[in-house]
Write a protein that binds this DNA or RNA. Structure first.
Lengths: 132, 132
DNA sequence: CAACATTGTGTAATGGTATAACATGTGTCA
DNA sequence: TGACACATGTTATACCATTACACAATGTTG
C-alpha cells in the first residue's frame, strides 16, 4: 500500500484513517462517523469522501460482504491487486492475505474465457483458530 | 443446485425465481419488487423472503459487490460451495464459475492458519471478451 | 375430523448504507 | 490578483434490508 508517511493526507482523511487503524475489526462508515462526531464530523459524506481517497491510496480496504472497511495491515505490499480476507464469524477478526498462487489462478481462469480482470473480491467466512 | 423440478416452490418463490431466470443480468431486490407489482407484490419483504429460501436451495446467488441477485446457471453442480463470479463492468453480464483448483487453494490457505472455512465470496471485476 | 404446529404471507414502520446537488473554503500558480 | 483544482460542509434523497405483528394456508397427529 501507499506509505502513510509519504502520502499527504488531508485532515479528514487522517481522522478516518486513524480511527480505522486503531480499531481491531472492520468498521462501517456510520460507525466511523459516530466516532468522529467529537472532531466535528456531521454527515456520512465526510466519511465516504475520505474513504474513497484512502481506497485509492490502498491504505484501506472495503469488505463487500460486511459493508465495512479496514485499514490495510499489509504494509510491505505495493502491488496489492489480489487480496483475500478471512473473516471470523465469531470474533469479527479479519485477516488479510496476499497469495500469489491464488492471484495466478484467478488470472488464469479469467484469461481462459477472455475476461480482462481488473479487480478481485475474495472474502472467506468461517471461524478462526482461536474461536474453535 | 437443487433441481427446480424437484423442489416445491411457493407462489412467491416461483414468481421471484422466474423473474431472475428470465433476466440477463443481476437484479436488485427492489427491481424484482417493481417487476412483480403487477402480480400483487407490494413490499420488499416479499422479495427478500423468497430470495432467502432460494438462496438456501442454491437456486439463486447473491453478488455482494453489487447488492444484487442472479439465478444459478450451474444446474449440474450439486456441490456448489465455491463459486466465482466474473462481472463485466461494461455490459453487466455475470458468469458463474466453479473451479476445483480455486476451491482447493482457498481451502489450503485457510488450513494453513487454522481457519475453518465455511463460505467463500469470489467476485471478479473487469470486462468480458465481447466488450473489449 | 379437530387441534395443533409449522410455514408462508401481508403490511407498516424503521434502520442501515450510499450518493446527488449545491455552496463554501483553501491552497497554488501564472 | 484571478483562475483553477481540490477539499469541505450541509441538506436532502435514494437505495438496501430487517423488525414486529397479524393473519392465512398447509400439514401433521390424535
Amino acid at each position: 500500500m501507499a506509505d502513510p508517511a509519504t502520502v499527504k493526507l488531508t485532515k479528514n482523511q487522517t481522522l478516518v484513517f486513524d480511527v480505522l487503524s486503531e480499531a481491531d475489526g472492520p468498521l462501517s462508515a456510520y460507525t466511523i462517523l459516530d466516532q468522529l462526531r467529537g472532531q466535528g464530523f456531521r454527515a456520512p459524506l465526510q466519511v465516504y469522501r475520505a474513504i474513497d481517497r484512502l481506497l485509492e491510496f490502498g491504505m484501506v480496504h472495503r469488505l463487500e460482504s460486511l459493508n465495512a472497511f479496514v485499514a490495510c495491515r499489509h504494509p510491505e505490499c505495493e502491488t496489492h491487486e489480489t487480496i483475500a480476507f478471512m473473516i471470523c464469524d465469531s470474533c469479527g477478526r479479519v485477516d488479510e492475505i496476499s497469495d500469489n498462487s491464488l492471484a495466478g489462478r484467478l488470472e488464469q481462469i479469467s484469461q481462459k474465457v477472455g475476461f480482462n480482470l481488473k479487480t478481485s473480491t475474495v472474502e472467506l467466512g468461517g471461524t478462526c483458530g482461536k474461536c474453535e
